[in-house]
């Protein structure tokens, strides 16, 4: 694996990751996709889920993102995410609580706008929980 792809993970508050990697798997809006060097240029949405960073054949890093956008060129893969946490830093109990709390927010929402916001948060919390469950199951 001679060619590497420059992976960047950016949140509005800072540049989180910027490193050359062998491959990244990004949870795209229309399904997961892996990016190797020389990937066709592409712009896509990212749904809440886990980004896997590969060195060789091993996953070296797993990062949870709460949705965003990805721009892929032949040499670069840039992910714009609003929230990103390393999977190992997520606490199962806290996330379960979050799912419960946001679920209640959806029920309590008075206006449609509030409801849509709360539902968005619920979806993110659920994806987070799923990511943890998936990680421990392996």
């Amino acid at each position: 694996m001679a060619d590497k792809v420059e992976f960047e993970l950016v949140s509005p508050e800072k540049l989180l990751v910027s490193q050359p990697v062998d491959m990244v798997v990004v949870p795209g809006g229309e399904g997961n996709f892996g990016v190797l060097a020389g990937h066709a240029p592409m712009i896509t949405t990212v749904r809440p889920g886990v980004i896997d960073i590969f060195e060789g054949d091993r996953i070296v890093d797993r990062i949870f993102v709460a949705g965003g956008f990805a721009e892929v060129t032949e040499t670069r893969c840039t992910v714009l995410a609003e929230q990103a946490t390393n999977l190992s830093e997520l606490d199962r109990a806290a996330v379960e609580q979050e799912v419960k709390d946001t679920g209640e927010d959806v029920d309590d929402a008075k206006t449609d706008g509030d409801r849509a916001l709360a539902e968005g948060r619920l979806a993110i919390a659920r994806a987070k929980l799923e990511a943890i469950t998936g990680a421990t199951a392996h």
């Binding site: 795209g28 809006g29 229309e30 240029p41 592409m42 712009i43 949405t45 956008f69 032949e74």
Partner: peptide, 13 residues
Amino acid sequence: KALYEFEPEEDQI
């Protein structure tokens, strides 16, 4: 002139 592919459609993104 990187011609991007879009997924989903441009206007949706």
